[in-house]
Write a protein that binds this DNA or RNA. Structure first.
Lengths: 113, 113
DNA sequence: TCTTTTATCAACCTTTCGGTTGTTTAAAGG
DNA sequence: CCTTTAAACAACCGAAAGGTTGATAAAAGA
């Protein structure tokens, strides 16, 4: 129950980088290996590997084994969790009263964010 | 659209902090001053002021003048920009994700944020 | 076995972040 | 005036991030 906040921390942090967002964009078209992901960028493969570790820790991607390859896959469920968080606040101002009580109800259980 | 990437950088980075997300949550219920925002937290007002500068630079909030006060307001348009970016990718792989209401249900269940 | 491919780990360096304290500015109220 | 309140500014410090090079591991293929 408690540390969904830490999950949001790592997910938003992971997306706060243009290289990592490009990786997400690439993976939305299908799985890819570290080398394939590194190819379009100027930075080293080690650096790309670190970026993928960040995305993996944020649960935005997962990895499988395929012989000596380690394909990286997008995890769309985590992206949904982010829009779900944002939506509870952006709807407040948009719909001012229409959806207000739905938001308050989901906020009532917790107090902070 | 030139430096949209930098705008996304700063906005996602700004949300990658539980204190700043709490500030967003508070502001979704109406404008507040630095002191009002700082009150529920253990950290100093200067630290809160810095957090608000981060949110302001990310254009997630704006400030107005009211005598010697500087009320902070939420800017829902920026939140929309973030969901717009995520939405490009989250629904791409139609076959893989679970139903939307399953996501919403799990979000409501453990809503620590 | 030896080599190639794929990818991680380890050490290191530089820059940025998150927080602190202390010092100003600016407006309102005695 | 002088004091109080609200808030920003500035300098500083420890911790973490982002990148590099170099060494290592594990599987496939010759």
């Amino acid at each position: 129950m408690g540390s969904e906040s830490a999950a949001l921390d790592s997910a938003f942090m992971a997306l706060a980088d243009p290289v990592r967002r490009s990786i997400i964009a690439r993976l939305s078209r299908g799985p890819a290996t570290v080398n394939e992901l590194a190819e379009p960028f100027e930075i080293s493969k080690q650096a790309v590997s670190k970026h993928i570790q960040v995305l993996e820790q944020a649960q935005l991607v997962t990895r499988t084994r395929d012989a000596q390859r380690r394909p990286v896959h997008l995890n769309p469920a985590r992206l949904e969790a982010l829009t779900a968080w944002i939506d509870q606040y952006r709807l407040v101002r948009e719909g001012q009263f229409r959806s207000l009580d739905a938001v308050l109800r989901s906020n009532a259980a917790d107090s902070s964010d």
